[in-house]
Structures are given as C-alpha cells and as structure tokens.
Design a protein around this nucleic acid. Structure first.
Lengths: 210, 210
DNA sequence: ACCCCTTCGTAACAAATGTTACAAATAACT
DNA sequence: AGTTATTTGTAACATTTGTTACGAAGGGGT
C-alpha cells in the first residue's frame, strides 16, 4: 500500500505525512460499478484515489441522475471533504467507473492535518479548486451547449478517464448519465457516425478523432 | 466600520480576529450595477459582505451569461478564495445587485488566518460548503427543470435577495440572467400572471404568493 | 440451429424552446 | 402635448428535444 501511495502522492506530500496516511488510512479495493457514496448518507472519511476512476453524479428528487465529473488517480472528493468538515449529508452519488483502489482517511485526522501540514492544506484547497472548475464545466455544458456537443464532450471525457478510445457502453447508459432519453442519444450517435467522428458497434463506441 | 463588521460577523469570529480584520481590511462601498470581478482577471483579495448583495455569473466564450447565485450579508465569495489560494484567474463575473458595503481582505492575511484562527478556518470551509451547494442547485435548475419552474425559482430568489416582493426588472434582463430569449420570458411571465402568481407592470414584477 | 434477451435504428408525433417580426403600451424627454 | 425610445404582447414559424412504438440486429446459452 505504501508504494501505491507514494506512486500517486509522493510529489505532493512529504514523507512524514505519507507515513501518517499509511498508518491511519484504510485501503479499499472496489470493483467497477459499485456505489461508494449514496445521497442523504453521512460521510465520515475521505477517499484518496490510488488507482481507477470514480463517477460523481447529482441525483434529483425523482432519482434521475446527471454526471458531474470523474475522479482519477491522485484526486480526492471535494464534496466528501465538504460533507466531513461541515457534518452535512451527501448531495451526490459516487460510483466506481472501473476497478479502483483507494485509501480512506478518517475525518479527525484530515482536520488535524490541515493545521499540521502545509502540503495537505494546499492539497485540500487544490482539490476544491479542481472540483469547482469541473462543476463550472458541467454548468457550461448543460446551460450553454446543445445535446450534440454535450455528447461529444461526454464521450471524449469518458475515453480519457478509461484511457481507451473504445468505450464499452450502451446508449441507455449514456442517456442516464446525461439525463436524456435513449432515443435521443441513438439519434445523435448515428449522426456522429455519419460525420465520421465515431464508429458504432453493439455495446461499444470507438472514437475516431480524439 | 468596526460596528458594521461586528453586526455581520461577531457571532462567527472572536474579537481578536475582528480587530485584525478591521485593521488590515479595506472598506469599499460599491454602487448597484458595478462589475466587481471580471472573468480572466486575477484576484488578490477576498470580499466580506457587510451589506447589500452581489450577483455571481458564469460567462461562456460568446460572452453569454448565466446567473449562478447571489452573495448576501455575512457571505464571502468562495470562488475568490479559490482564485487567491490557487493563484488562478477568475472564471466568473461578479456584479453588485444593489448598493453594497464590503471589506476586502488581502490574500496573505487570509492564508495566515487559516492556521491561526479556527473560526476563520471554519468560515472558509463553511463558505465553500454553501457555494458548492448553490452550484448544485444551479445545476439542478438548469439540468432537471423546465423554463417555467426555473423562472419561478429565479423570481423568488431575486425577491428574497432584494427583500422586496416587487422586482424592478425588465424581461430582457431576466432573459440574460437565465440565458434564454426575451420572448420566452415574456411568454412564461404572461402565463404566470394568468395563473395568478404574479402581477406584471412595465419594469416591475410583483410576486403574489411568496 | 434455435430461442431469448438486450441493444439499436427509425419513424411519427408531441412538447418545449428559440427566432423573427411587428404592433401596442408605457415611460421619458423636450 | 407631442415626439422618441424602451418595453411588452403576440403571432407564426423553426429547431431542438422528448416520447411512444415497433421491428431488426446481435450475443449468449442450450
């Protein structure tokens, strides 16, 4: 575990902090597709991603989803930090996008380190920064773009996170993430294929111009 | 100034911190409608609102706006904090919604206080919390709601911030804030009037069922 | 090969939103 | 009072997105 930790975080944290993390953090291996955080749940620890990716979704009162962004190696969940520090319920849902290794840091330690380690403090603020930016990107996408552009952004983002230009996904799954209907997605994907930007197969979409 | 400061913040900050704020902070009085922060600008100080209200907008590449949320008395701008701490450019535009008094805190002090004062630290994290929540509300509104509901939320929010159930605003201004067209807003407002929810006059909208 | 289940393509239609155009109403100014 | 500029109402139409329905295609298991 300490090696994986150093791999992902040694250029951010000093050794002393890395050791503390290793001693109090709990390693977790999560399979693809598992729900890590549910809405309305209290959060008592924050995750440090060693490997893999996590999908963060907003859920409305009808249970409809909207993809906010992905967390990757070296990321942490600013919304979790937020829930921890302010003792509030989760407003989002987190699902592993692929098999993921993470270290869970208990709330009290993470508060303690904010005062103790400058590097931890900047990591926390840095991660707020990235997440705020991603939220703004999501707002841009939903508020300013039409479906076809949104879809293209979605596909590119997904390909990047999975480090694979061939996406194993159904039209229905995309529709859920983007909060629209399967028929709409199929229609637009077909158009993208005709325009030579993607290649469609059952259960897979190949990106042609990344 | 120290009185206005105590009025708005004494139940959050201890006396020592209040005195420090008073001694290093710069008081600013800003008239309604002035732009405080532009996109692409660097931010070197953060504002504490004593009185008034500030409108925070997202701007896309075409210069189109979208209202994110309002800041009120006792609030600070998490995005400013963010820009300061991470030395990044502003991604948003801030315009005073009405005449506003605020105290500007220089960057280095605000960083110093994070370690020095627990109350300042929780204020900062508390404000990240509120802003993240408001961003999520904005996303909900744009992603999950149809225009008519969005418009009603907008009107209610605006009435709350201005502490007045009669809004002095044109249809065009609403359209800019919501990133849609004037005709769409006029149409929906008319429907709301017919439904008995508002009263329309030139340059003003009266809310009837707050 | 056959059946079953999921996924995908497409048409036809409905609803929501955006656009253009123009007239009417209101406020502001001289 | 009369002129002007701004704001609002409304129609007519275009575009985008959402919905329903159904058949075709593909994959897995037996």
């Amino acid at each position: 575990m300490i090696e994986a930790l150093k791999d992902a975080y040694s250029f951010i944290f000093e050794d002393e902090l890395l050791n503390e993390i290793a001693s109090v953090g709990k390693l977790k291996n999560v399979r693809e597709g598992e729900i890590i955080i549910r809405t309305e749940e209290y959060v008592n620890s924050i995750p440090l991603l060693l490997q893999g990716a996590i999908k963060i979704l907003r859920v409305d009162e009808n249970g409809d989803d909207l993809l906010l962004y992905f967390l990757e190696r070296g990321d942490t969940c600013a919304i979790s930090i937020n829930c921890c520090l302010n003792r509030t319920k989760s407003e989002i849902k987190a699902i592993t996008e692929k098999d993921t290794d993470l270290i869970m840091i208990p709330l009290d330690k993470m508060e303690e380190w904010i005062v103790k380690y400058k590097s931890w403090r900047s990591f926390i603020f840095q991660s707020y920064n990235t997440r705020l930016k991603e939220m703004l990107d999501t707002i841009d996408s939903v508020a300013f773009l039409k479906m076809d552009k949104r879809l293209l952004l979605y596909l590119k983002d997904k390909a990047k996170v999975n480090q694979n230009e061939v996406l194993q996904i159904t039209h229905q799954e995309i529709a859920y993430d983007m909060h629209t209907s399967r028929v709409v997605i199929s229609r637009l994907l077909k158009k993208l294929e005709i325009d030579g930007k993607i290649d469609l197969k059952r259960n897979s979409i190949a990106m042609l111009d990344l």
